[in-house]
């Protein structure tokens, strides 16, 4: 086994906002109906977070749990701890209908940071960023590809599929080009 590498190996760009590809980051797709017995325990065991409410991202240190759909939660945790977490989830949801799967390598993750980071996002997604709350997880479109993102004090985290990481990096960089502030 060699060290896992993220899709772009940490590429970055400095424009009026800063773009950084980060990772690898541990991610688990957990599918289970809301209210499934043991779901709260499973999420807690993997991330230390409570079950996220509609469109919310629960965060604890470098771990998080995000609402992806009525029966899907995205779990974020250190890359090395995924298989351990999958075991814990299986334990917590034993006998309950669910699906937990490692998607850490299927994704690319970016940070968009700076005082005008929101302007980069406003160029690529049909989302009202004036009303996007801190810790709100939004799945949408970034130009021509699917993306999920959320906002914190320092900027945005953007997640997309690994195969289009190069497209996303170029798209974010183009949108953050100095002189193109909105």
């Amino acid at each position: 086994m060699s060290d896992p590498i993220s899709a772009l190996n940490g590429a970055s760009f400095d424009g009026f906002a800063t773009i950084r590809e980060i990772g690898p980051i541990g991610m688990i797709t957990l599918r289970a109906k809301a209210g499934t017995k043991g779901l709260d325990k499973a999420i807690m065991a993997a991330t230390g977070c409570a079950v996220p409410a509609l469109l919310r991202m629960e965060t604890k240190d470098d771990r998080a749990a995000g609402w992806m759909s009525p029966d899907e939660v995205l779990l974020i945790l250190p890359y090395a701890e995924v298989s351990q977490a999958l075991d814990a989830i299986a334990q917590a949801l034993k006998g309950q209908h669910h699906l937990a799967v490692n998607v850490s390598d299927a994704r690319a993750v970016f940070r968009v940071e700076g005082a005008q980071a929101d302007q980069v996002m406003r160029k690529i997604s049909p989302v009202d960023f004036d009303t996007l709350a801190l810790g709100e997880l939004r799945r949408s479109r970034a130009a021509q590809v699917a993306a999920a993102f959320w906002r914190d004090e320092a900027g945005f985290t953007v997640v997309c599929f690994r195969s289009v990481a190069g497209y996303m990096m170029a798209l974010l960089s183009q949108s953050a080009k100095a002189g193109s502030e909105l």
């Binding site: 899709a7 160029k123 690529i124 130009a143 021509q144 590809v145 599929f161 690994r162 195969s163 289009v164 990481a165 190069g166 497209y167 170029a170 798209l171 183009q174 949108s175």
Partner: peptide
């Protein structure tokens, strides 16, 4: 923005 390198998303394998 859809021109040149980002005219359309290219999917790349590892």
């Amino acid at each position: 923005e859809a021109r040149g390198e980002i005219f359309q998303p290219l999917r790349r394998t590892p």
